[in-house]
Amino acid sequence: MNDNNAIFTTRDLAVGYRNGKNTVTLLKELNLTLEKGKLVALLGQNGAGKSTLLRALTCDERPLAGCIEVNGRNLAEMSQKDRSRLIGLVSTERIQAGALTVTELVGLGRQPHTGFLGRLDEEDRGIVRQAMTDSGIIGKADEYVASLSDGERQKAMIARALAQQTPIIILDEPTAFLDVASRIETMRLLQTLAHERGKAVLLSSHDISQSLMLADELWLITTDRQVLTGTPADLIKAGAMDHLFENRSIHFNPTILDYSF
């Protein structure tokens, strides 16, 4: 790795979408840094460009301008295979893997490391077991993915990303469909992965108070399309939280770490 802790940086990145001939820029001139061992939460109102930004960071969408560097190498110029060893993804995409066991699903995370036919050797199986243990889904190892609750399924998908053994994990709304208990559990798990395993973890979320409590750093997409970064405490102090939503009738209340009327 690098000398400093920064492993993922964007250089004058602009993201948005192309709509026929028109280009709609959502966010531009982004110079963001993701560090090892840190949990970063990306916050912003619906339509602010959270998913679009994440899709650019995972190379699922080409940025409108600028580039992304990992350890000094341009992500866009790497092969798909090299990228798959750097960034693990947990998205909200519907999967068709109900008839796989949890072990098989997590085992798919080994694909960037296995041979032509994707066979797992003893070492791979050990890594898969460890990933399931770390994400607390080992008890369901032989169950079908279809039989899992939403929270368990999310843990299995996180275990799959862990088995991929990437230094960076990017999660698109990992707590979106979860109940409160599963949300807290998932966020704690991600925090542990960052702090104890040294992963750089970036997630987008709607859960403001959770993110403020557990994230080491926030990326706030403000209503005027700026991305403010900093620790939760610094951002609260600077009053940045009041620029998150357009609705003027709600205000950030620092004592409850959430919004109120």
Partner: peptide, 21 residues
């Protein structure tokens, strides 16, 4: 011989891409 990418595609195209396919 396509067994490996076929399994990755069970997770949808975005995950498959993320797995290096």
């Amino acid at each position: 011989m396509m067994v490996k990418p076929l399994n990755a595609l069970l997770l949808g195209t975005r995950y498959a891409r993320n797995l290096g396919v």
